[in-house]
Amino acid sequence: MLEGKVKWFNSEKGFGFIEVEGQDDVFVHFSAIQGEGFKTLEEGQAVSFEIVEGNRGPQAANVTKEA
């Protein structure tokens, strides 16, 4: 699992990017966010995740919000 911070997330469109120190930003789709209820992320929020190869390159999977 990697750790990063949410760079930005558009809850209307359901996607955004996660910043990872020393690496390129990683695309995140709302469907990759773990948990119940409305799936969104806040700018600057700490998250842990895995990287998988998507249709358009690397993207986040199994995203969990850090306490």
Rank of each mutant, 00 (worst) to 15 (best):
L2W: 13
L2G: 09
L2Q: 14
L2F: 12
G4I: 01
G4V: 01
G4P: 01
G4E: 01
G4F: 02
G4N: 01
V6A: 03
V6S: 02
V6H: 00
V6K: 00
K7I: 08
K7R: 10
K7M: 04
W8H: 06
W8K: 04
F9E: 00
F9N: 00
F9A: 02
N10W: 09
S11F: 09
E12L: 10
K13H: 07
K13V: 06
K13G: 07
G14Y: 02
G14L: 03
F15M: 15
F15S: 03
G16F: 01
F17K: 05
F17A: 04
I18S: 00
I18A: 02
E19R: 09
E19K: 10
E19V: 13
E19Y: 12
V20S: 12
V20L: 08
E21T: 13
G22L: 11
Q23S: 09
Q23H: 13
D24K: 12
D24W: 06
D24F: 05
D24L: 07
D25Y: 07
V26D: 00
V26W: 03
F27D: 00
F27C: 02
V28H: 00
V28G: 01
V28K: 00
H29L: 07
H29K: 02
F30R: 15
S31Q: 13
S31V: 09
A32L: 03
A32E: 09
I33H: 01
I33E: 01
I33R: 01
Q34F: 08
Q34Y: 06
G35E: 09
G35Q: 13
E36T: 10
E36S: 07
G37I: 06
G37K: 09
G37H: 06
K39C: 04
T40A: 12
T40Y: 07
T40Q: 11
L41N: 01
E42M: 10
E42C: 07
G44S: 07
G44W: 05
G44C: 05
Q45S: 11
A46M: 09
A46H: 10
A46D: 11
A46E: 06
V47G: 00
S48K: 14
I51M: 10
I51P: 03
I51F: 04
I51Y: 07
I51C: 05
I51T: 10
V52F: 07
V52N: 10
V52K: 14
G54C: 04
N55P: 10
N55H: 15
N55L: 08
N55W: 11
R56I: 09
R56G: 12
R56C: 05
R56S: 11
R56V: 09
G57A: 05
G57L: 05
P58R: 08
P58C: 04
P58E: 06
Q59T: 07
A60I: 02
A60M: 01
A60Q: 00
A60L: 01
A61W: 14
N62P: 02
N62K: 14
V63S: 01
T64Y: 07
T64K: 10
T64A: 14
T64W: 11
K65C: 06
K65G: 14
K65I: 11
E66P: 14
A67Q: 12
A67G: 14
A67W: 09
A67S: 15
